[in-house]
Design a protein around this nucleic acid. Structure first.
Length: 503
RNA sequence: GACCCUGUAGCUCAGGGGUAGAGCACCUGACUUUUAAUCAGGGGGUCGCAGGUUCGAUUCCUGCCAGGGUCACCA
């Protein structure tokens, strides 16, 4: 680091560090034998049995200091929470003087016994302590002041969103409550994995670097392989590879996949995001509906002990069965129109009646999609399966067994979010080729997101894929929903940011 | 990509054409059960960056950079 950037606080900390080294103390030692977390002590200490905690070793980051001459209190924070430490000069002798070389942010290890102070706080009375890491740059430490009328005044709150995302490590220290979101995220993923594994479905890994991207309509990131001298695409979805594995004879495969889409960023979108896809042989979309219903119901019960969650003051119930509605019935319900036989221009004028401007030259599928997501989707708060989509919107889904022009597809909406997308998978290679060709025509007309023909995938379908039910779940949005977060950036540890420009 | 808002101390913010303010954090001293510790002193800023207007710009204007929000595209 350029020393001209050092402010007075950094300079002082560096001097403290050098002093510690000069007197033979390693400010960056190798290990510490921690015996208890803060939470274990706070939860289990009993005043009538203090002997159980006669000798504990705790470690954590110093978050507050209250120095009172010959006695000092500080709070240290470990992963489980905070605990107060008490130091006395007459017991620590020389090392007491060294406390003045410690700062908020330093990590220390303390050996001592647990007691309760006059004010009632469970505290570790230090017999000895050692520095485990000297912190050379100050962190903001919020202090909550309560005034006479009981209002909370928070000083030093670390609330700047840019800094919180860029320096997530500081955010985690200073706003430890957010750890809950990431713990819950891990629990959700591990629950889903266990659920699938228990049913014998195989977790697989498929290529992130793909010569032909597919499985979704989106613009890709492009990269280059030097040795082969070819462009490769970061995957936008793993669907076509998972289906190849069903062709290969695995009867249930799933992948928890980082996907990459070169599109806008906002509250609901990050350029890289996590999707779950699963394909099970011999099943159709009705079976998938019941599976995802059971998966989400049992997940929510497992996490919260209840079928009901709260998102943004709304109660959302995951009680089975979820509502099931055909897409065209929803159009009827919200537009009072039967849109199934309408032309493009008729649809545009219907949209206008509902104060929705549709850009020119959109295909019928895109217009319907637009109307649906603007007018219908925001109303789907309780878990709702929307079924039976127009064929043009779903080039990888199998034609509906009885409804002309539709496919066997559903999406699950909760709180207006699209959580899951599923099909009876298209396995007729002739039909699949026609759908790809239609996509190619759209692409030629300028639709940059239309799919590319994947000849190898068609070859695989010619080899033969059994009837298959497939499902995709947007993990980030599911986590948002289940942790009551309003931005995708709040459920991704390191969300994408514009790089900081060197000023 | 378009529009709106924002950028001042380590953090959160106020201010305003004439030597830059608060709370917390930091430093010195006092204090052996404090917890917003308290008390007495003190230091710390290229006011996002670059131009322009002006006797003088952190303040006004323009451009750029960064962030947030809304819209567009999308999941």
């Amino acid at each position: 680091m350029d020393t001209s950037e050092l402010n007075d606080q950094k300079i002082r900390r560096k001097e403290e560090l050098q002093h510690l080294e000069k007197i033979g103390i390693n400010p960056f030692p190798y290990n510490f034998n921690k015996t208890h977390s803060a939470k274990e002590i706070l939860d289990n200490f009993q005043d009538e049995q203090p002997e159980k905690f006669q000798n504990v070793c705790v470690a954590g980051r110093i978050m507050t200091f209250r120095r009172m001459g010959k006695a000092t209190f500080c709070d240290i924070q470990d992963e489980s929470g905070r605990i107060q430490i008490y130091f006395r000069k007459n017991e620590l002798e020389d090392t007491y003087e060294l406390l003045k070389y410690l700062d908020i942010g330093d990590i220390i290890g303390v050996e001592g016994f647990v007691f309760r102070t006059k004010m009632g706080e469970i505290t570790v009375h230090a017999k000895k302590y050692e520095i485990l890491c000297k912190s050379l740059t100050p962190i903001p430490v919020p202090k909550i002041e309560v005034d006479e009328s009981g209002n909370k005044i928070i000083h030093d709150q670390f609330s700047d969103k840019e800094l919180r995302y860029r320096r997530r490590y500081v955010d985690l220290i200073v706003n430890p409550d957010i750890k809950y979101v990431f713990r819950t995220r891990a629990k959700i993923i591990s629950y889903i994995r266990n659920y699938f594994d228990a049913r014998g479905w195989l977790e697989v890994e498929t290529p992130i670097l793909q010569p032909i991207y597919g499985g979704a309509t989106a613009r890709p990131f492009i990269t280059h392989h030097n040795a082969l001298d070819i462009d490769l695409y970061l995957r936008i979805a793993d669907e076509l590879y998972l289906k190849r594995l069903i062709v290969g004879g695995f009867e249930g495969v799933y992948e928890i996949s980082k996907n990459f889409r070169n599109e806008g960023m906002d509250r609901m979108h990050n350029p890289e995001f996590t999707a779950l896809e699963i394909y099970v042989a011999y099943k159709d979309y009705f079976w998938v509906m019941e599976m995802v219903e059971d998966l989400l119901n049992s997940l929510v019960v497992n996490l919260f002990g209840s079928e009901t969650i709260t998102y943004n003051d709304k109660q959302i119930s995951f009680r089975k069965p979820f509502e099931r509605k055909k897409m065209f019935d929803l159009f009827k319900e919200y537009l009072n129109e039967n849109v199934i036989d309408k032309t493009e221009s008729e649809l545009v004028s219907i949209a206008k009646k509902h104060e929705l401007e549709i850009p020119n030259n959109l295909s019928k599928a895109k217009i319907l999609d637009e109307i649906f997501s603007e007018i219908v989707q925001p109303n789907l708060i309780q878990p709702t399966f929307v079924t039976d989509y127009p064929i043009e919107m779903s080039p990888l889904a199998k034609k509906h067994r009885s409804e002309k022009g539709l496919v066997e597809r559903f999406e699950l909406f909760v709180n207006g979010f699209e959580i899951a997308n599923a099909f009876s998978e298209l396995n007729d290679p002739r039909d699949q080729r026609e759908r790809f060709e239609e996509q190619a025509r759209l692409r030629a007309k300028g639709d940059e997101e239309a799919m590319i023909i994947d000849e190898d995938f068609l070859y695989a379908l010619e080899v033969g894929m059994p009837p298959t039910g497939g499902l995709g779940i947007g993990i980030d949005r599911l986590v948002m929903l289940l942790t009551n977060q309003k931005s995708i950036r709040d459920v991704i540890l390191f969300p994408q940011m514009r790089p900081e420009s060197p000023q």
